[in-house]
Design a binder for these strands. Structure first.
Lengths: 173, 173
DNA sequence: GGGTACATGTAATCAGTTACATGATTTA
DNA sequence: TAAATCATGTAACTGATTACATGTACCC
């Protein structure tokens, strides 16, 4: 079985939690969605595949909601560690829908306004998150948040400049 | 027919070129790949779909490579303009494979080294592109490049900081 | 004329999304 | 006990990727 990014996310989340039901995974994945979003259908299917491949153990509850409860096996832990230890040089394209429109000649000012507002909101959200961050939390998520902060600041700077520039250009006309 | 992002990219590229064969589109799409990559199989199939929907006109060469040559129809131009005029507030998650590993607890230093190198290379590439930019070029691609520059600078700053920080932590031990 | 790079396409697969369907628990 | 919401799953679809297949032009 080929392991996808979603596989590794599920392995990583189960590792963090110790054990997890699909619903637990769904909740945890929601907290990760600004970095890498995962659909609920995937989060319910993927652990089954991973269990079939021997990377997770599965335990079924009898009564009630008949939850499936997953844990890492030794093989799963090894697979996760191997993935973490690959110092990948890959990075992805920006894939930004607003920027794409700008590329193809969209009118900059209205676009800049709505983009700026959206990114300012996201930046505030991150700042609040960072301010409330517990000192004893693991470092990984904190570093990811710092990266997010940096990029949101950059987006705000970028769109603000676009807005001001095109505003000035309009006034000159 | 539902128009996807790839549809709009193809419409945008045909608009820029006036007319284009699938191969032309492939070449142009390569220049866009840092912003939004498109596979060659898509670039050969999509114009056919758009032509069937009446958004592109198709003209077949007789001899030689029997190229298909596409142009925007009035409907195609309208669809492109409508898409450009939507001031979207959407933006996507970071989806960065390195950052994801950091999130799940990867050893920061080796990762930071290879990421830093990759982003420095990309940043240099963008800077050279910007330096050689013709003055009479349309503004859209230039703005997209400026966004790319900003984000690459931010990535370099981020990974450099991670590297230095974890280097210092290691020396303290 | 034989090799290589360029060019063009389709078939098969697969991951991811959307939509549907239903059961369990809580609350008014 | 009815309604709402929480929780759990699967089926169908579709967009994207990978792999395959082949033809054309150019260069040595």
């Amino acid at each position: 079985m080929r392991l996808t990014t979603v596989s590794h996310i599920v392995l990583g989340l189960v590792d963090q939690a110790g054990e997890a039901t699909p619903y637990d995974l769904k909740q945890m994945a929601a907290g990760l969605s600004d970095l890498w979003s995962v659909q609920h259908a995937q989060v319910y299917r993927e652990p089954g595949r991973l269990a079939a491949a021997g990377l997770l153990s599965e335990e079924k509850e009898e009564g009630g909601r008949r939850r499936r409860r997953f844990r890492l096996t030794a093989a799963g832990r090894a697979a996760l560690r191997a993935w973490l230890a690959e110092p990948t040089a890959d990075f992805t394209e920006l894939r930004d829908p607003g920027l794409l429109r700008l590329f193809f000649g969209a009118d900059a000012e209205p676009l800049a306004r709505v983009q700026l507002e959206a990114h300012e909101r996201k930046l505030r959200e991150y700042e609040e998150l960072a301010a409330a961050w517990p000192d004893d939390a693991p470092p990984g998520p904190r570093l990811a948040l710092e990266a997010g902060l940096g990029h949101e600041r950059e987006w705000v700077r970028f769109w603000r400049q676009i807005r001001d520039r095109s505003g000035a250009a309009r006034r000159r006309r």
